Simulated assay, not measured.
Amino acid sequence: MQRLKSRQQFQVVMAGAPVAKTPHFALHSTRLGHAPDARLLFPVADTWLGVLLPKRWARRAVTRNAIRRQIYETARAMAPDLPQAALVVRLRSEFSRKQFLSATSDVLKRAVRAELELLLGRVTTPLPRAQVPETAHAG
């Protein structure tokens, strides 16, 4: 998995509407072959990931850093199922400071991770029917 680093990379991915949303996050995506100057901006055929965490929605740096770590860890765990595309995860609303008192609490981390798994699960490539384990069909 590669990380988006340049402004141009973020602009190309953010140009389109979000492909998936949850209460706190939006996911923007662009296929690598369809991006203008794709070979220059994304030289490696891989999953590219960028994160936008505006101060407007996460005022404290410790909160932004905790959320950023959860995003990268969740994406790393789901990497084999993610498409070869450029993805940007954008925080679009605040996690309530009344509900989550500490920015580093396990409760906040679990809530963020659960929402991210749902968000990224919407763009994962499902296993072909022949490769689905037989135990998944039982009962």
Rank of each mutant, 00 (worst) to 15 (best):
G33M: 11
L41Y: 10
A15D: 06
V89S: 05
P36W: 01
Q99C: 04
A136S: 14
L127D: 00
L52E: 04
E117A: 08
S93M: 02
N65D: 05
Q70K: 14
D46A: 09
R31I: 14
R92Y: 08
R68N: 08
V44Y: 09
K109E: 13
R129T: 06
T22S: 13
E115P: 12
R59F: 13
A79H: 04
E115H: 14
Q84D: 00
A111R: 03
A138Q: 14
I67P: 00
R122D: 14
L120N: 01
E134C: 03
V112A: 14
P18D: 08
S96G: 03
L41A: 11
E134L: 14
G50Y: 00
P80N: 07
Q2A: 13
H34N: 00
P128V: 03
R3F: 01
V112C: 14
A66D: 06
V89E: 07
L41T: 09
F10A: 11
R90H: 10
T47L: 02
P18I: 15
G121C: 06
D106L: 03
P54M: 04
R129P: 05
V89R: 03
R59A: 15
R97A: 07
E115C: 11
K5N: 07
A58S: 07
R64H: 02
S29P: 00
L116W: 10
S29D: 00
A45Q: 04
H28L: 09
R129W: 08
F42G: 05
H28A: 12
L49W: 00
E134P: 01
A103Q: 02
A66G: 06
G50S: 07
P80R: 12
R76P: 01
A61F: 05
A15I: 13
R97D: 10
L108V: 05
H24S: 12
P83A: 07
A26W: 15
H34R: 07
R110Y: 02
A15Q: 09
S93I: 01
R68S: 15
Q99L: 01
S102A: 15
A85V: 05
G16S: 12
R90N: 04
H34G: 07
G50V: 01
P80C: 05
A17L: 13
G33R: 12
M14G: 13
K5S: 12
A138I: 11
A35T: 10
Q8F: 07
R110L: 06
D81H: 05
L52T: 04
A58K: 03
V19Q: 12
M78D: 03
H24L: 10
Q8S: 15
T63I: 07
H24V: 06
A66R: 01
L118H: 10
D46H: 05
H137S: 04
V132Q: 05
P23W: 05
V13N: 02
Q99W: 03
